[in-house]
């Protein structure tokens, strides 16, 4: 092929390349990068108290105001509490179920299907189910706790976040179980055999073989689970609408309220940027650790 000809072909290939990437790029441009950049502009402008007035450029004033507001601090604290309530429990439960169902025994297929089953629910379905279970009049949870007719767990600021967390953990059990099972399958059998030959009993094998071999999965699940928990919205909206008394007003829910209740997208943008930074840090931590693990493996 002559140079001229191949130059034409290369140009044709390049053109095709751009054409294939373009549809995705347009969508990303409009629905990811534009709104992302817009957040920074929104953060620098204060929304007027009455609709119709022009937005006012205030520099970093609004950012400082929001970041130092007690409302934001409370929301952030609640979000972190929510993460701490859901992620570790979810991982431990998933791991427990996965270890119990890992052995090749008769009937394990049924247990595995049951433990995976909650992935077939949605956040909304799980929330509606648990809302009825927590309901002071008809809820079985309240009935069994002997709290029928009392202040419902969702109306009590002391228990509302826990109730939301229980709902979330249950909905995520399936995913957690699937991830942990996949991790367990990655542990080579000969390691167990070696441990068995060395005379390690079940508990020792778990602590000295399974857990260390599973640590990448555990770490990974912790980070990903945290990212997901930071983005929680549906269960809050259905179960508590951020209440009672803002006790479950997590970051994303407060952003939603800022925009769709208070019409203040300036404040929302500052919080959104904060959320982005948190997720970014978690992602970087994960990439760093993954990188280090790769170099260990060599």
């Amino acid at each position: 092929m002559s140079a001229q000809r191949s130059a034409r072909r290369r140009a044709k290939d390049a053109l095709l390349g751009y054409a294939l990437v373009l549809p995705s790029l347009v969508v990303f441009g409009v629905f990811v990068f534009y709104p992302f950049v817009k957040n920074f502009s929104l953060a620098l402008h204060r929304t007027p108290p009455f609709p119709g007035l022009p937005k006012k450029y205030v520099g970093l004033d609004q950012v400082k105001d929001v970041l130092s507001s007690s409302e934001f601090h409370k929301s952030l604290r609640i979000t972190i509490e929510f993460v701490m309530l859901t992620v570790p429990v979810g991982i431990v439960l998933g791991l427990l179920l996965a270890v119990l169902a890992h052995k090749q025994l008769r009937g394990m297929g049924i247990y595995r299907t049951i433990f995976s089953s909650t992935v077939a629910t949605s956040v909304a379905a799980a929330s509606v189910i648990f809302w009825t279970l927590f309901n002071p009049q008809i809820g079985l949870v309240t009935y069994w706790m002997g709290r029928s007719g009392d202040l419902g767990v969702l109306e009590d600021p002391k228990t509302a976040l826990i109730a939301v967390a229980v709902t979330t953990v249950w909905q995520n059990i399936g995913l957690s179980f699937i991830l942990m099972s996949a991790g367990l399958q990655g542990v080579p059998d000969d390691l167990y055999e070696a441990a068995a030959v060395d005379g390690a009993d079940g508990a020792r094998r778990f602590w000295h073989v399974t857990l260390p071999m599973l640590s990448p999965t555990l770490f990974f699940s912790a980070v990903v689970g945290s990212i997901m928990a930071f983005q929680a919205f549906g269960q809050i909206d259905i179960l508590t609408r951020g209440g009672p008394d803002d006790a479950t007003n997590v970051l994303v829910y407060s952003i939603y309220e800022d925009v769709f209740r208070a019409g203040n997208d300036g404040v929302a943008a500052v919080k959104a940027i904060a959320l982005f930074v948190i997720v970014l840090i978690l992602t970087i931590v994960q990439l760093r650790v993954a990188e280090r693990r790769v170099s260990y493996a060599r």
Binding site: M1, S2, A3, R5, S6, R9
Partner: peptide
């Protein structure tokens, strides 16, 4: 691979039969 046309030539000419195939896909 240059005869096949999968690789581009820096210089020269390839004929298949009577046909110069330098520019042929």
């Amino acid at each position: 691979r240059m005869i096949a046309g999968l690789e581009e030539m820096t210089a020269g000419e390839i004929r298949i039969g009577d046909r110069v195939v330098n520019d042929v896909e």
